[in-house]
């Protein structure tokens, strides 16, 4: 099963290789890994998408926690969370195709971020399923390049009980 883990780490040199090395050394999967600074100086946030059965994911969480530079580990599968990923797509766009490409961009609320006579670069945001759907749709025009950030996630705010 796919799990999205949120990991707060001390922003020290080598912290990324400690985490990446843990996954490779123990044979855990990494689907995507995203790191960026937080508002607190010296602390970075990683979002790791991984998969495995319950016992493996429990091990992954514990092993991450055991790393001396890891401050906190949360499994978003256990909590309501919003998850988003950003993707840039460079699509072949010549002549008659351009109109249809632009319509598709609209429907999926993507954005055009760069244009040339024969290519259009599109920015898309969504969860993994949505991005997969967008890729499938644009495939028939010809995708020249894809760049994806990997997922980032955040816990949903508490909802008032009704």
């Amino acid at each position: 099963m796919r799990h999205v883990l949120s990991v707060l780490v001390e922003n020290e040199p080598g912290v990324l290789s400690r985490v990446a090395g843990l996954f490779s050394g123990r044979g855990f999967n990494i689907e995507s890994l995203n790191v960026a600074p937080t508002l607190e100086a010296g602390v970075s946030h990683m979002t790791i998408t991984t998969s495995g059965d319950e016992m493996i994911v429990e091990q992954i969480m514990k092993q991450l926690h055991k790393l001396v530079t890891v401050i906190k580990v949360v499994d978003f599968n256990e909590l309501a969370a919003v998850e988003r990923e950003m993707m840039l797509l460079k699509v072949q766009a010549e002549g008659a195709m351009r109109g249809e490409i632009l319509r598709t961009v609209d429907i999926f609320r993507c954005k055009v971020v760069d244009v040339s006579p024969n290519e259009i670069t599109i920015e898309a945001t969504g969860n993994a399923d949505k991005l997969q759907a967008i890729i499938s749709l644009f495939q028939r025009f010809g995708i020249k390049e894809v760049a994806r950030t990997g997922s980032v996630a955040m816990r949903r705010s508490m909802q008032a009980e009704v």
Partner: peptide, 14 residues
């Protein structure tokens, strides 16, 4: 050596 011993130390420092 910090890179080499990362997986076989509890922790290491440069």
């Amino acid at each position: 050596i910090v890179g080499i011993t990362r997986p076989c130390t509890k922790h290491n420092f440069l």
